[in-house]
Simulated scan of single mutants.
Amino acid sequence: MRPLLIASLAWQDYRSDARLSACSVLALVAVIAPLLVLFGLKFGLVGSLTERLQRDPGVREIIPLGGGRFDAAFIANLATREEVAFAIARTRQIAATAELRLPAQGRAVTVEMLPTADGDPLLQGAPVPTGLQQAVLSFTAAEKLGVKAGDSLLASFSRQQAGQLQWRQSELQVLAVLPLAAFERDGLFASLTLLEAAEDYRDGRAVPALDWAGEREANATQRVYPAFRLYARSLNDVEPLRQYFAERKWLVSTQAAQIAQVQSLSRNLDLVFWIIAALAVAGATAAIGAGAVAAVERKQRELAVLRLLGFGTGALLLFVVLQALYSGVFAAALGGLLYALAELGLNRMFTQVPGEYASHLLPLHYLVALLAVLSASTLAAALGGWRVARIDACEGIRDV
């Protein structure tokens, strides 16, 4: 019961000194609100940049440069690495093209063919093509052809043989059309087997699965690929993969420099924030401690009366600490409200992309801020209120 009695007495005294209590609260708000705005800007801006990079598969793509010679076993091993989210072989780029047309229309579009499979980040949940008669189109290619998911297309593959132009056609079902942001060129995503069939045909080899004749049969066991499509699992995995290929003297193109810039910005902002926060917290702690000392001096007679009534040093110290905690709670609430208003204004002024923020805090951040304010208030009040140990009960007798 005694702690509850002390809490009640501290609250009554806190209310009676409303002006001084309000000044204490406003002094803390002057520290808390700017820190919340600063951290909200840091977390919102860097978080939005990081999420934008993470959402863009192209940032995590590792592109081999120059002609390589990779077998299926090597690429399968790449796909099993912990840093890799998706890996698949690519045929020669000059052979990975097709001319698409609607059966009832004369217009045609030449598209780039890309191999795909389960886990392809560019498909973004679209159905995965399998076999030789299924494909997913990019937005620009579908727009030029005027097709949608479920339509059928004719894909033409041409080659020069003995000085003559030859070509073969294959019917493809469009499983889906990708959004423009996923792939901005004219592209066709199909299974690797279709790209291998197109390459074999253009190299003069037979493709029995499509009944395309050739001078010789393809040998799948001896097939090598000049490149691959590879995506890192996260932004932090891009640099390790770049180093992996650099150690083997394979040239690759990555967005590691862009990712490093964002990560460096985050580290620098962290440093600036913690320096400012440390200075502000030190000042607030000193102010709370000085306030506690002043409160003990100002209420020395009242505290002496409490000691006369049987309250010990610990109870008197709790009296001082509780009043500091009352100020901390009110200041944290008012600071959070002011930050919420500032966040709303900043996001309306500076945010242009839906789902991104110029300033943003999570509920966890508010909780951490509240605990930090209460901890600093408790420590500062305890250090500043140590003078209650010197208060003698006789002063309460004289006051009575």
Results as ranks from 00 to 15, higher is better:
residue 128 V to S: 12
residue 149 A to R: 08
residue 144 K to N: 13
residue 188 L to E: 09
residue 151 D to P: 00
residue 136 V to K: 01
residue 157 F to G: 02
residue 145 L to D: 00
residue 131 G to F: 12
residue 148 K to N: 02
residue 160 Q to S: 14
residue 155 A to Y: 02
residue 180 L to N: 15
residue 137 L to Y: 03
residue 148 K to I: 09
residue 183 F to G: 01
residue 190 A to Q: 12
residue 142 A to H: 10
residue 166 Q to A: 10
residue 161 Q to C: 14
residue 187 G to I: 00
residue 151 D to A: 00
residue 142 A to P: 08
residue 161 Q to W: 15
residue 179 P to W: 01
residue 131 G to N: 09
residue 162 A to C: 01
residue 125 G to W: 14
residue 158 S to M: 09
residue 182 A to M: 02
residue 137 L to I: 00
residue 138 S to G: 13
residue 174 V to E: 04
residue 182 A to Q: 10
residue 156 S to R: 14
residue 140 T to E: 15
residue 179 P to D: 04
residue 188 L to N: 05
residue 182 A to I: 02
residue 145 L to P: 06
residue 170 S to Y: 02
residue 169 Q to I: 07
residue 155 A to S: 12
residue 165 L to A: 14
residue 161 Q to E: 15
residue 135 A to R: 06
residue 163 G to E: 11
residue 191 S to E: 08
residue 177 V to L: 02
residue 129 P to R: 09
residue 191 S to W: 06
residue 143 E to F: 14
residue 168 R to D: 02
residue 163 G to N: 11
residue 160 Q to P: 05
residue 146 G to N: 02
residue 187 G to R: 10
residue 135 A to Q: 09
residue 134 Q to F: 12
residue 156 S to F: 07
residue 172 L to K: 05
residue 174 V to M: 05
residue 136 V to C: 06
residue 162 A to I: 00
residue 173 Q to V: 03
residue 157 F to P: 01
residue 173 Q to N: 07
residue 138 S to V: 06
residue 128 V to G: 11
residue 155 A to P: 04
residue 191 S to V: 06
residue 154 L to T: 11
residue 147 V to K: 00
residue 134 Q to I: 11
residue 191 S to T: 08
residue 158 S to E: 12
residue 127 P to E: 13
residue 131 G to C: 11
residue 186 D to I: 06
residue 181 A to M: 13
residue 132 L to C: 09
residue 174 V to P: 01
residue 137 L to Q: 06
residue 186 D to K: 09
residue 152 S to M: 03
residue 131 G to S: 12
residue 158 S to A: 13
residue 147 V to D: 00
